[in-house]
Amino acid sequence: MQAEAMNRHQLLAALREFGVSDTVYGINTRDLKSFVYVPEAAPVLAEGLDGRWYISVYERGEQWIEASFDTEAEACAYLYETVTRRWANRPSQG
Rank of each mutant, 00 (worst) to 15 (best):
E74M: 13
F35H: 12
H9V: 15
D70K: 15
A42V: 02
R86P: 00
Q63D: 03
S92Q: 13
R52N: 11
C76L: 02
A73K: 12
Y58F: 15
A73F: 07
R16F: 07
R8D: 11
Q2H: 10
A46K: 15
A46F: 01
T82G: 12
E17C: 07
T29W: 08
Y54F: 14
L11F: 01
Y25T: 06
V38G: 12
A88W: 05
M1K: 08
G48R: 03
S21M: 06
S34A: 01
Q2A: 15
L12T: 09
T23Y: 15
A3H: 10
E40C: 01
Y78R: 04
Y78L: 05
L11H: 00
S21I: 00
E72C: 10
S56M: 10
E74Y: 07
A88T: 07
A77N: 00
W53Y: 15
R8W: 12
E74S: 14
E17P: 09
A73E: 11
G48D: 06
R16N: 03
L79H: 00
E59G: 04
D70N: 11
G94S: 09
R52A: 09
Y80S: 02
F18N: 11
T29F: 01
R85K: 10
Q10L: 12
V57Y: 04
T82L: 14
A13H: 10
E40Y: 01
V57T: 05
E81P: 03
L32K: 05
Y78D: 11
Y58A: 08
W53N: 07
L49A: 13
S34L: 00
V83H: 03
E74F: 09
M6R: 02
M1S: 09
W64L: 03
R30W: 11
A67D: 10
S68E: 14
I55T: 01
V83M: 03
S34F: 04
V83W: 04
Q2F: 06
P43T: 02
A75M: 02
T71A: 07
A77E: 08
W64C: 01
